[in-house]
Simulated scan of single mutants.
Amino acid sequence: MPTTGRFVGAVLFGALAWYTSLLIIPLFPEGTNLGWFQEVNTLFGLIAGWSVAGSRAGTGYVSAFSYGLTAMVAMVVMALFFNSTVVMIEQSLRRRYGGPGKAVTAVFELFMEYGSMMLTPAIVGTLVFGGIGAGLVVEFFAKRYP
């Protein structure tokens, strides 16, 4: 059921994903074709904000810290897994892997590679403080406009 908390959560976590994607793009090698990178990540932010933060909104400001961080982690994991899977499929179409087992293993290797690439103070700080801040704002709107 749509609520103000779900809507605000989707918008804020979508914006957080969009901005974080902008911070990540310069970390890729020059000339990397990122395609719909920002848009897909924004979609995962919308999903995490709606389903994780928005569904828990209205439970108090202390809870807002935890569901803000939970939504942020869910957003990052979904985006990393999806982007790693897309890269693996592109590479498997070029016959880079010797079999399906190696291709599946490559998804998790790419997941770890991209995850470690994101471990910069600017990106981690943006995600942590953005997740907490978005959780608090979601809670504010959920309490005021149920």
Rank of each mutant, 00 (worst) to 15 (best):
T70D: 12
A15T: 10
L80R: 01
V62W: 05
T126L: 08
R94I: 13
Y67R: 09
L69D: 04
A142H: 07
M72K: 00
F108Q: 10
M112D: 13
F65K: 09
T120N: 04
G115E: 07
G58T: 07
G54C: 08
V62L: 14
E113T: 13
A74M: 09
L16D: 06
G135S: 05
V137Q: 10
L69S: 02
M118R: 11
R56L: 15
G131D: 06
G68E: 05
R95P: 00
P26W: 08
A64D: 04
P121A: 06
A142D: 03
R144Q: 14
A15K: 06
I24V: 15
E39C: 00
S55Q: 14
G68S: 04
A71E: 05
G9R: 03
S116C: 02
G101Q: 13
F140G: 05
V52I: 15
M72E: 07
A48P: 06
T20H: 11
L12T: 10
L80G: 10
V8H: 03
N33G: 01
T126W: 11
F111P: 09
G99L: 05
M1E: 14
M117Y: 01
S63A: 14
F44H: 15
M118I: 07
N83A: 03
A57H: 10
R144F: 03
G35K: 07
Q91C: 00
I132K: 01
L69R: 00
I89L: 13
S51W: 15
S116D: 04
G9L: 07
V87L: 14
A134M: 01
A103K: 07
L110S: 11
S51V: 12
V76M: 08
R144N: 10
G31N: 02
W18D: 10
R6G: 11
W50Q: 01
Y145V: 12
L119D: 07
T85P: 01
F37I: 11
T120P: 07
A57S: 15
S116G: 02
V104D: 00
T42Q: 13
G54S: 12
A122T: 13
G35Y: 05
S21D: 05
V87S: 07
R94C: 01
A106M: 04
V107G: 05
G14L: 12
L27T: 11
G60I: 10
L23R: 03
G130H: 08
G135V: 01
S51P: 00
G115P: 02
I25Q: 07
